[in-house]
Computed example of a mutant assay.
Amino acid sequence: MNRYLPVARQHFLSALSSMSVVVKFICATVLLLYLLSWAVDTSYALGVTPGYLFPPNFWVWTLVTHALVEEHVWGVVVSVGTVMAAGRLLEPLWGAMELLIFFAVVNVSAGLLTGLSYLFTYAATFNLDYLFAVRVYGAPGFLGGVLVALKQTSGDTTVLRVPQVRLKAAPALALLFMAVLWLAGLPEIAAPMAACFYGVLAGWVYLRFYQRHSRGRGDMSDHFAFASFFPEVLQPAVGLAAGLIHAALVKMKLCRKMVKRYDVGAPSSITISLPGTDPQDAERRRQLALKALNERLRRVEDQSAWPSMEDEEDDDDEVRTDAPLLPTQEVEALAAGTSASQNPTGQESSIISFEDASSHS
């Protein structure tokens, strides 16, 4: 085991060196706060406590800092590994700034929704432990958001071969695993499970409706619908319920109605881009269509090209010079025949005969 540690450390450092400044900053902050937790209760000062998040305390900064706090080594491994996986798989597609926005949106939403859920639980049970004994911190919220993003970008990737598990099932499996741990008698897993669930929900809402990209905003493709997070048996019912809820939110103006957009590009070509389509595939098809159109126009231009006047004159000269010369008798006979055909009354023939007679006399 000890001989593999230097190799793992080398791979970790090489992977971290290739990351952006955003990923390095988040990982360094997590490590620094973990070391600080040995001397200070960082989960109390920087983690989300439902009783302190809402009035009259308003510890709103904890919505930003709770995702960077860890108190256990395994939590640091999960947090740093999640951030590095996002930097390796999502940052090349989105960019560093978009990854930072996604990190902030998911964590703030997960912390706020988790705190609200515990507040409602206290309102139903009047148990103060749900307000002041609960600490929400760590990477579960961002882990749920990253799993949703990986489902969107590379959902068909196979994670396990036996049994065959694809990446698109990872969010549901993560929540199921946490639920099993909670039912097995680990009550401290309840807060991470709630944060992971709300991270999945926040990540899906942001990627589905609000993320800006070159094709517009959001992703309305069928493979990223809310029903796709459930087994195929439940997808029709979940899809119907989700559609009704979305329509109600649109009527209440709490959600924006999504429409498919057709973007017309340059006048030389027409580009039709729909949300959810692969931009590289669309660009490849556009190039093929443009190439076929150019070849067709080239053939039409070759067929309708104007002939050269010099070539026609040269051809006429060749025809005149190459034509065979007729004998003199044939020429006279042709001339006489032409004159007779032009004077059907016979006047020309009488003149000729008169001249002949006068010459004989």
Score class of each variant (00 low, 15 high):
residue 124 A to Y: 02
residue 295 E to L: 12
residue 321 T to M: 11
residue 17 S to G: 06
residue 10 Q to W: 10
residue 203 G to S: 12
residue 15 A to E: 13
residue 139 A to D: 05
residue 156 D to N: 14
residue 222 D to Y: 05
residue 117 S to A: 15
residue 141 G to L: 06
residue 4 Y to W: 13
residue 316 D to M: 10
residue 248 A to Y: 05
residue 302 D to R: 13
residue 194 A to N: 12
residue 124 A to K: 07
residue 161 R to T: 15
residue 296 R to H: 09
residue 218 G to Q: 06
residue 305 A to K: 13
residue 353 S to V: 10
residue 24 K to G: 14
residue 281 D to H: 07
residue 91 E to Y: 06
residue 8 A to E: 10
residue 17 S to P: 00
residue 173 L to Y: 02
residue 145 G to F: 03
residue 230 F to C: 00
residue 173 L to G: 02
residue 290 L to A: 14
residue 358 S to K: 12
residue 273 S to W: 07
residue 74 W to V: 15
residue 108 V to E: 01
residue 288 L to W: 03
residue 319 V to R: 09
residue 63 L to Q: 02
residue 326 L to S: 13
residue 101 I to V: 14
residue 264 V to H: 10
residue 242 A to T: 08
residue 133 A to F: 05
residue 11 H to Y: 08
residue 136 V to E: 11
residue 210 Y to Q: 10
residue 189 I to L: 12
residue 276 G to E: 08
residue 154 S to A: 11
residue 7 V to A: 09
residue 12 F to D: 05
residue 180 V to S: 09
residue 288 L to C: 06
residue 8 A to H: 03
residue 330 E to T: 15
residue 170 A to M: 14
residue 162 V to D: 07
residue 239 G to W: 07
residue 223 H to L: 06
residue 272 I to Q: 04
residue 267 P to K: 04
residue 355 E to A: 12
residue 317 D to K: 03
residue 128 L to Q: 11
residue 198 Y to H: 03
residue 139 A to N: 09
residue 322 D to H: 07
residue 88 R to I: 13
residue 342 Q to E: 12
residue 292 A to C: 04
residue 48 V to Y: 01
residue 145 G to K: 01
residue 343 N to W: 10
residue 291 K to V: 09
residue 255 C to Y: 02
residue 12 F to C: 07
residue 302 D to S: 09
residue 3 R to Q: 14
residue 168 K to T: 06
residue 306 W to C: 05
residue 190 A to K: 12
residue 90 L to K: 05
residue 358 S to V: 14
residue 91 E to Q: 10
residue 126 F to W: 13
residue 204 W to L: 10
residue 304 S to N: 13
residue 206 Y to N: 05
residue 129 D to I: 01
residue 281 D to A: 15
residue 33 L to W: 06
residue 212 R to V: 11
residue 331 V to L: 15
residue 46 L to G: 04
residue 77 V to Y: 04
residue 264 V to Q: 07
residue 272 I to W: 01
residue 135 R to C: 05
residue 70 E to Y: 00
residue 28 A to N: 08
residue 50 P to S: 03
residue 294 N to Q: 14
residue 342 Q to N: 12
residue 190 A to Q: 13
residue 136 V to G: 05
residue 303 Q to H: 08
residue 287 Q to I: 12
residue 86 A to V: 04
residue 293 L to R: 13
residue 182 W to I: 11
residue 210 Y to F: 13
residue 282 A to Y: 02
residue 289 A to N: 08
residue 202 A to R: 01
residue 116 L to W: 07
residue 254 L to D: 00
residue 44 Y to P: 00
residue 298 R to M: 08
residue 318 E to S: 03
residue 196 C to N: 10
residue 332 E to H: 05
residue 191 A to E: 09
residue 324 P to T: 07
residue 85 A to S: 02
residue 228 S to A: 15
residue 115 G to W: 03
